[in-house]
Design a protein around this nucleic acid. Sequence first.
DNA 1: ATTATGACTCCCA
DNA 2: GTGGGAGCCATAA
Length: 123
Amino acid sequence: MPSGYTSPPDRHLFNAKVWEVVQQIPPGKVATYGQIAAIVMKSLGIDDSKGRAYGPRWVGGSLAACPDSIPWQRVINSQGKISLRGGSESNQRSLLEAEGIEFDSLGRIDLEIYRWEATDIPW
DNA sequence: ATTATGACTCCCA
DNA sequence: GTGGGAGCCATAA
């Protein structure tokens, strides 16, 4: 059950694509929900005419149901912050710190330094 | 049937 | 730099 708005045209396919992309993020790097959404939607030919109303939330929904093999912790919001509901129920921050990613005093990751650039991937 | 609730981002004050 | 509102609808209760 997607925690977000609407569902993609093909939820199963969308999930698979999200996980495929997330799996490409190397340790020590992070990507934003919007970034993943843009890649996946473009790849699947989904028109994002409604602005960014859907995509990022769909990604969140996909990550909520992802297998353990997916490094979901490397996906954060556009502010460089972790956006889990409960927050304390997750060890996302610990996982990222274990990869060498540093958080500032406000609990944010510096995207200028750690953002993953998907330039080498032929989507 | 109706209500509450989202793993978000953008834009403007 | 921060903060609030809009966009927008599938599920669960």
